[in-house]
Write a protein that binds this DNA or RNA. Structure first.
Length: 558
RNA sequence: GCCCCCAUAGCUCAGCUGGAUAGAGCAGCGGACUUCUAAUCCGCAGGUCCCUGGUUCGAAUCCAGGUGGGGGCGCCA
């Protein structure tokens, strides 16, 4: 038996359905659903178990449903008001007020741990989440912002569910792009035109000004100092966005060594050679990625003796493997998607288990404004940075915008809308629900208590709100399993809407049911705060609209 | 040519291991403020879930083939 203490009322309901099915003498071909129907007429929860059992029992689904209903009635006892057979063989369960009250008591009793552990929670894993990892040749832009919000939220969700999460930023401080950065900075320092293929952004003037010897020093030194400055700047931008990292991993460090010890790249080459995955051809060192499904083999070491970017990445992942993580999650920009297959191939060539590496691709953010789509290019030097985005619409709205949609959908971000109508952003709706509860609880003089049942029947809005609270755990679990933190956003919005309906229908302060409803409101507040925190969004105690002091988007900056 | 992602309301997007009459926000129209906070709520309108075929009790969802859009295919990073 599983740990009954950790199981939620919905878990127990599901278990009752399974036991009832077993009582009929059959096991379903797949796990039966237990879902909240869209329509109230279809009960509090509905299951398709009868349809799944019909085959094994060789009986019509509706007949099976009728027998299942009797078996479930035995299992649930007084918690079940009635069960109705509907449609092709659904069984709609109507639960009593008593069940709902007990469910709320479970939520209250679970406290801050509510939603953290399910009855079938997977074991704790050591997870490495690598995200952002934008080249240190320019400020973090909007694409990096989406990556940052996503990776951070995913890390928060995994941590919430008990995993040991390590956050990492891979700094590309090696190779030709870095040299190009050095040349561009030096040109700025010397007051001569930046090379045509260099980085044209104005921000490099500041970088050049901040490096004392930028005009005369060796370009490679200037480049490293510039990288250090850009990394510091990215760190500050991300921190202001609520995103921090445990490790800033230097690509350069993969190439350095203290003889006779090999560098990490050389070590990775050794690992691959031991497995017989590499060969020499045309003076270059190649990796047989085709053995793992890649289109063609890939070069690790050029005929010139230089290592490719791919070599760095392989060494980096070998290093992660040796650090003992159970799961590696890499969050890459859409421009890297062509790289996924060969990275997987390389990972397996190293001896890694394919299931231990999860490569996620963040689709593009298209910036839309009145003038149309804006191209984002660091070289052109005209793009919206994370700093600018935060300055325009704030951390909370920015994170909501970037997190509310699935990562594999190309996304339009309308800057004009985000600026001029930020009050209409759903994030404020969710925050407002939280603040409203805080206000109500400040006014309430009674101690919230879910065991003091209202004399009258529960209002449908009360029942709906309790059910919405119970959906929290599964929503978070799914966000983690599917690497889909946007589900957390969808959930919090739904919970806020359900609460607002409850608020409309049910008076709290001064009502005979005040203690019970205050407990319900307080639980909602806590779940909203937890959900918002998983998104990295604040949960204010108070919010007031003040049109007189509302920021004017057209006003000149002070 | 090959590979990846996407296609759902006027717009931006949800839609959980396939379930019942496909949803939200914004935009539009009409209402509700001496409020437990109107940053709110109620109502109306808005759909060929890109197309074709397949799988089955049942497909927006899964499979195949198309069409359209975005992106990537270097001994660059």
């Amino acid at each position: 038996m599983h740990d009954a203490k950790a199981s939620t009322p919905v878990d127990e309901l599901r278990a009752a359905v399974l036991r009832a099915g077993a009582a009929l003498g059959a096991t379903p071909t797949s796990a039966p659903t237990l879902e909240r129907p869209k329509q109230a007429a279809h009960g509090d929860y509905a299951t398709n178990a009868a349809m799944l059992l019909a085959g094994a029992l060789k009986s019509p689904p509706r007949e099976v449903a009728t027998r299942l209903a009797d078996a479930i009635a035995v299992e649930l006892g007084e918690d079940l008001e009635r069960a109705e057979v509907a449609g092709p063989g659904f069984l709609n369960l109507f639960l009593t007020d008593g069940w709902h009250a007990k469910a709320l008591q479970h939520v209250v009793g679970a406290g801050d741990a509510f939603g953290q552990v399910g009855a079938d929670a997977p074991g704790r894993k050591k997870v490495n989440v690598e995200f952002v990892s934008a080249n240190p040749t320019g400020p973090v832009h909007v694409g990096g912002s989406r990556n940052a919000a996503f990776g951070d939220a995913l890390a928060r969700v995994l941590t919430f569910l008990g995993h040991d999460v390590h956050r990492e930023y891979y700094v590309n401080d090696y190779g030709s792009q870095v040299l190009k950065l050095g040349e561009s900075v030096q040109a700025r320092a010397q007051g001569v035109p930046v090379p045509a293929d260099g980085y044209q952004g104005e921000y490099l003037q500041e970088v050049a000004d901040a490096i004392p010897g930028a005009a005369a020093d060796d370009v490679a030194d200037v480049a490293q100092q510039a990288v250090a400055l850009m990394v510091r700047r990215a760190m500050a931008s991300l921190q202001a966005f609520g995103v921090t990292f445990d490790t800033w991993f230097s690509e350069r460090s993969l190439h350095t060594s203290r003889p006779p010890a090999p560098s990490k790249v050389e070590h990775a080459f050794d690992v691959l050679a031991e497995q017989g995955r590499t060969y020499r051809h045309d003076g270059a060192l190649w990796l047989r990625t085709t053995e793992f499904g890649d289109d063609k083999d890939r070069v690790l070491e050029r005929s010139s003796g230089e290592h490719t970017y791919f070599a760095s990445d392989i060494a980096y992942h070998q290093d992660k493997r040796e650090r003992g993580f159970d799961l590696l999650v890499d969050i890459w920009g859409a421009d890297h998607h062509g790289y996924v297959q060969r990275m997987h191939a390389a990972f397996e060539a190293l001896g890694g288990d394919a299931g231990q590496l999860d490569l996620l691709i963040m689709q593009f953010v298209h910036l839309v404004s009145a003038e149309g789509r804006e191209k984002m290019s660091k070289r052109a030097g005209e793009f919206v940075t994370l700093d600018e985005l935060v300055a325009d619409i704030g951390v909370d709205a920015a994170r909501w915008f970037l997190l509310a949609r699935s990562h594999d959908t190309t996304m339009d971000l309308d800057l004009d809308l985000a600026k001029s109508q930020s009050a209409d952003n759903p994030v404020y709706y969710v925050q407002y629900a939280h603040a409203r509860i805080a206000s109500i609880l400040r006014r309430s003089k009674v101690t919230p208590d879910p065991t003091i049942l209202p004399g009258a029947e529960l209002h449908p809005s009360e029942r709906a709100l309790i059910q919405a609270l119970l959906a929290f755990g599964p929503a978070i679990q799914e966000a983690a399993d599917k690497r889909a933190p946007h589900r957390v956003a969808t959930y919090t919005l739904d919970l806020a809407q359900t609460f607002t309906a409850f608020y409309r229908d049910c008076l709290i302060v001064g009502d005979p049911a005040e203690a019970f409803r205050a407990a319900l409101a307080a639980s909602t507040q806590r779940v909203l705060a937890t959900g918002l925190d998983l998104l990295g969004i604040s949960a204010p105690q108070e919010m007031h609209r003040d049109d007189a002091t509302a920021p004017d988007p057209d006003a000149a900056p002070a």
